[in-house]
């Protein structure tokens, strides 16, 4: 399931295979249920509007999970050391949300092979409602 990725094979400027998500209202409610989030904003369009929102929104952490999915698919769970994201804009049900990543750094520190990767979620209007960064440690091939 995981593409083999070794330190020698990764170059600064490389882009990760994008992961496209289109969270439906059902999926958002399912996520909110596991989370125990009963508030209007993740469950009910009309009630969310009364809170001043455009309607139901996608939980930021749900897309953080999607970014982690993209990263672990490429580098494995063991490789992912840190993931930080900023939530900058609302994401709506049925938005086409594309998770993307680009390698920005590659260096060896204290005997560990570090990769740093900018990650973001882009919607169909070219906006980036989630931006962030991941730190990854991967082995040499040989």
């Amino acid at each position: 399931m995981t593409e083999a990725s070794f330190f020698e094979e990764v170059e600064v400027g490389d882009e990760l295979s994008p992961l496209v998500k289109q969270p439906t209202r059902e999926q958002i409610r399912a996520y909110a249920k596991v989370w125990g989030a009963t508030g209007a904003r993740f469950n009910d369009d009309e009630a969310a509007k009364k809170e001043g929102l455009p309607g139901m929104i996608v939980p930021g952490n749900m897309m953080m999970a999607a970014l982690a999915q993209m990263l672990t698919h490429r580098f494995s769970q063991q490789a992912l050391k840190r993931l930080e994201v900023d939530f900058r804009g609302f994401m709506r049900p049925d938005d086409t949300l594309t998770c993307k990543g680009i390698i920005t750094e590659k260096h060896i520190r204290e005997g560990q092979n570090y990769i740093e990767c900018d990650v973001f979620v882009e919607n169909e209007r070219g906006e980036k409602p989630v931006v962030g960064k991941a730190v990854i440690v991967i082995p040499f091939k040989s």
Binding site: T2, Q27, A30, Y31, V34, A65, T72, Q78
Partner: peptide, 26 residues
């Protein structure tokens, strides 16, 4: 709960959802 989380976010990696496959994993 882990399985429900995976279903909600569309995560299908056997490491998280397939007990048999995960047993052979890291």
């Amino acid at each position: 709960t882990i399985l429900e989380f995976c279903r909600a976010v569309g995560e299908t990696n056997p490491l998280y959802v397939d007990e048999e496959a995960a047993k052979k994993g890291p």
